[in-house]
Simulated assay, not measured.
Amino acid sequence: TSPQDMLPRGFEYHNGNGTLCLIGSYEKEGHVFTEEHDQSIDYGIDFYAPQTVLTPDGRRVMIGWMQNWDTCNMRSQPKTWFGQMSLPRELSVREGRLYQKPVRELEELRRNKVEYHGVKVAGEALRLAGIEGRTVDMELEIAPAQGRELCRKFAVRFAQDQERHTAISFRPHESILKIDRKFSGSRRAIIHQRRSLVRHEGGALRLRIVLDRFSAEAFVWDGEQVLTATIDTPLSADGISFYADGEAVLDVVKYDLM
């Protein structure tokens, strides 16, 4: 459902005009639904009014409107389009929680695999050869360096050039993941960031980030949470870099989407 003007509850429902799902049990004969859990569907900036379809092979697939009500009138000229739809997402429920994964057919568009394992990230932004682009499917595993304290912050920056970038950052001491587009090229004081409380395993976190020219969708722990945002950054800004305040170890697998 897509309620409007909601008050936040902890780290849930910060969009005001957001989306939520109700999970519970349904008794068919009496048509009685018993709610057992509720949660945000998307923890990012731009996601509203999702619709679902049932595929012939039995998958429940959802697509959302990748926009938020507070930026509807801020169309930048001279683009001939405004707004877009999210990736189709396969839905499932595990242990009373909604999970979302990019529809499996997306993997058929993957090309040019590049991977690194055990890369130490510390201090200044790190660029890796072959890790760049604006139509990208990228899997990250972030972990503490062996024998070292948890880093204070880890960030991946994308759609990046000398002036612009969008970032997804993780603070393990606070268990907070944030998407932030304030340096993406926006010329207005619009909604630029959202934070989500995430689960981590001793400071380790797994992310899948899908970039589609003017959008980013970040899937946490195989879809346990998702953060979505649109960006208005020139396509020439195609850099990707990694940063740690402290020290972290990174595994990354990146594909171009063709």
Rank of each mutant, 00 (worst) to 15 (best):
M66K: 07
M66R: 02
M66H: 02
N68R: 12
N68M: 14
W69P: 08
D70M: 06
T71C: 09
T71R: 12
T71E: 14
T71H: 07
C72H: 11
C72P: 01
N73A: 11
N73E: 09
M74F: 10
R75P: 02
R75S: 09
R75F: 11
R75Q: 15
S76M: 14
S76P: 08
Q77N: 13
P78L: 04
T80D: 15
T80W: 13
T80K: 14
T80R: 13
W81R: 13
F82G: 09
F82S: 06
F82M: 10
G83P: 03
G83I: 08
G83S: 04
Q84P: 00
M85N: 09
M85D: 02
S86H: 00
S86I: 00
L87A: 02
L87R: 00
P88C: 10
L91H: 07
S92V: 08
S92K: 08
V93F: 07
R94K: 15
E95N: 15
G96S: 10
R97C: 06
R97Q: 11
Y99V: 02
Y99L: 09
K101C: 06
K101P: 00
R104S: 15
E108G: 12
E108R: 15
E108F: 13
L109K: 11
R110W: 05
N112Y: 04
N112W: 07
K113P: 13
E115N: 14
Y116N: 05
H117P: 00
G118I: 10
G118F: 09
K120R: 13
K120N: 03
A122E: 09
G123T: 07
E124P: 00
E124R: 11
A125R: 14
L126M: 04
R127F: 01
G130F: 04
R134G: 01
T135N: 08
D137H: 09
